[in-house]
Design a protein around this nucleic acid. Structure first.
Lengths: 165, 165
DNA sequence: TGCTTTTGCTTCGAACTCGAAGCAACTCAA
DNA sequence: TTGAGTTGCTTCGAGTTCGAAGCAAAAGCA
């Protein structure tokens, strides 16, 4: 490999730009639907989805896992969801610090109500123009990229844990 | 065709989730770098990039084109960029309503300063785990998806005249 | 010409996000 | 046991986003 080429070649730029813009548009569509159909945001939908899938209680940390958002943002959203009666929060018996989050019947009902429409949006906006081969390729590629990024150190903002070395 | 199947099959879910999470992570990395290296946000970087590429003046509307953000958000960001001396705004002679935006030397300099690092982040986070074939596939797929979504009507944001269920 | 509608942008208020700081509970080694 | 360090979550403040409403210029139309 050469030492840091000047820029990106056309194919790289195209892939990068198309990727970012397409996902931006998709997020926007999804957001619109969820807001109109269930009065919730994408973040809230994802939280409900996690709880519905977990089929039990999750701590705040587990709930945030995989989501980029900050802890404080999660606290805020959890507050909204609790106020809306979609989840309940309680202190864990095992660990007094931990907050256990449980989805309520109303939360589950709302999730089930908006899910079909959500799937429909994803189908129409993302899946529609893709062949089975495309779908396979996309899943394979993005899974690899995601796993790669999960393992990459932040480079700049180093975690303030203990010094190593 | 069948009437809206119950959900998504595993391959579809995998592709959808991996896509959304990977892009989320990438955006986060990019944001971190730009903030640390140039003191600007991703949005501001994109605006500067557009202006640098346009090599002249753009109206606010042209500047927002392709970016999902609202007009008011663009006004806000343009205000910040102008305050920072990276762009200038002036009224168009042709159309008194239009605001023409021009990138300053300082803006261009800043853009050029952060670009290499930005490219490096994209390389390391997104491009690194991809083969030439992957890159080609990804560009092809996402370009198709993006163009598809650009042409799709909003679907959901329609006037809510109809009763629900 | 007058009038309505459309277009381009801004202002305003509400909502959302993040990081830093703070608090309380837990862990672990001495 | 005890005290330093870590972990889980919340609070707070600053910054950013959006949509609705508003304003002025332009375009359509009678």
């Amino acid at each position: 490999m050469t030492d840091s080429p000047p820029g990106l070649d056309p194919a790289q730029i195209e892939a990068y730009f198309a990727l970012m813009e397409a996902v931006g548009l998709l997020e926007h569509q999804v957001e619109q639907h969820l807001r109109a159909d269930g009065g919730i945001s994408y973040v809230q939908f994802q939280l409900l989805a996690r709880l519905a899938a977990a089929d039990g209680q999750l701590t705040m940390t587990q709930l945030a896992d995989g989501v980029v958002y900050s802890r404080s943002g999660l606290t805020y959203q959890a507050g909204l969801l609790e106020k809306a009666g979609l989840i309940t929060r309680g202190t864990s018996a095992d660990d007094e610090r931990a907050t256990l989050v449980t989805i309520t019947d109303a939360g589950l009902a709302l999730f089930r109500k908006v899910l079909p429409g959500h799937v429909q949006v994803v189908r129409r906006q993302l899946l529609a123009p893709l062949s089975d081969q495309d779908l396979h390729d996309l899943g394979d590629i993005m899974t690899r990229v995601r796993d790669h990024m999960r393992n990459e150190p932040p480079r700049s903002a180093a975690p303030r844990k203990r010094r190593q070395r």
